[in-house]
């Protein structure tokens, strides 16, 4: 319907992701402002329990099929595309996550519906929708207006309050069959690959020394390790360090890594891209060391040291060892 807001629920291993509730909370507000209904769309197999948690929505469209048991870029796109084509919602909210990236842009191109991505702010005023996107690694925000009757918005995790998207209410559920066959597709799900078990679980550490590109070489990691040892903590890292193969995946903090909430998070040479901040913003005390005074990490840190980690770290390790006597 022309004023409805659809939210595509995202789930993994039978658990809805937080961003689903964040989108539902915001979607509720927008649907009310536009005089439309809020509809949650859940794709999967045996998802009754999941659909029952979407009570903030006026109704739930449930597409339940064995072929949808696991997320698949192809099967999910085919089903979602036919639902959106059929129901013509004003807005379709999809998470700007790994799964969502395989849905939002392809749907936009296939259905010729505009897409605004990396949404961190969304408002509607007498039916006019305004979207704020977080671009340029968090350095510039861009506010756009939707100029067509329908749009797809891909929403960054952590942008909206999740509480507003949770309700005890039981939603009315409409079962929908896939309109086309989901056999013989070109993308086949094979298995989930769990992370290698690790000696250290960084989500359980109280103190983390976290390194980024500024550490420059694998050999320099020893400096950070020594500091972490003196503090009685462990080391973690931002994405580039893991991609370089300098530390195992189990040490990665951020969007595609772990979310951590230590008492102390001390960053060395991390600029603070949004993908990293997503995984560490809830740390109790954040101290950041970076040579660039404009680094976005200083927007989230409690304490800022603008300087060279190679000068600061040895001095700090020495002092901590001294302080502990």
């Amino acid at each position: 319907m022309p004023n409805d807001v659809f939210v595509v629920a995202e789930h993994l291993k039978n658990k809805l992701s937080d961003v689903t509730f964040e989108m539902l909370g915001k979607g509720r507000e927008i649907a009310d402002a536009c005089g439309g209904k809020l509809v949650a769309v859940v794709l999967g197999s045996g998802t009754k329990d999941l659909a029952a948690q979407l009570g903030v929505a006026d109704s739930v469209i449930s597409v339940d099929d064995p072929a949808l048991e696991h997320f698949s870029p192809e099967a999910y796109r085919i089903v979602l595309s036919s639902v959106v084509k059929d129901r013509q919602p004003k807005l379709t909210l999809i998470a700007n996550t790994s799964m969502g990236m395989d849905l939002a842009a392809p749907l936009s191109a296939e259905l010729n519906i505009p897409l605004v991505a990396y949404c961190k702010g969304l408002s509607a005023d007498s039916g006019n929708v305004s979207v704020t996107s977080q671009l340029y690694a968090g350095k510039v925000d861009v506010e756009s207006s939707i100029t067509s009757a329908q749009a797809i918005i891909s929403v960054l995790a952590g942008s909206f309050a999740g509480d507003a998207g949770r309700s005890e209410r039981t939603p009315s559920i409409e079962e929908v069959r896939p309109s086309t066959s989901l056999n013989d597709l070109r993308v086949k799900f094979r298995r989930l690959v769990e992370p290698e078990p690790s000696d250290v679980d960084i989500t359980k550490e109280e103190k983390l020394v976290s390194i980024g590109r500024g550490i420059q070489s694998q050999d320099n990691i020893a400096l950070a390790e020594e500091l972490a040892a003196a503090l009685g903590g462990a080391i973690s890292a931002s994405r580039p360090i893991i991609d370089n193969g300098w530390l195992p995946k189990s040490r990665q903090v951020g969007k595609s890594g772990m979310s951590v909430k230590p008492k102390l998070y001390l960053t060395l040479g991390i600029s603070g891209a949004p993908e990293h901040v997503e995984g560490m913003k809830d740390a109790a005390t954040i101290i950041a060391v970076n040579t660039d005074p404009r680094a976005p990490i200083f927007d989230i840190a409690d304490y800022a040291v603008v300087g060279d980690l190679f000068d600061i770290v040895p001095a700090l390790t020495e002092r901590i060892k001294g302080a502990k006597g």
Binding site: L12, S17, H70, F71, S72, P73, T97, S98, M99, D102, R186, V187, K188, F189, R190, R191, L192, V193, E194, P195, K249, S250, Q252, K255, S256, G257, M258, S259
Partner: peptide
């Protein structure tokens, strides 16, 4: 291998071209 959050990945077999 497609990366999800928390270090979990999904493995897909995809017919080319893709």
């Amino acid at each position: 291998h497609k990366e999800y959050a928390g270090g979990v990945m999904a493995e897909f077999e995809v017919v080319l071209p893709a």
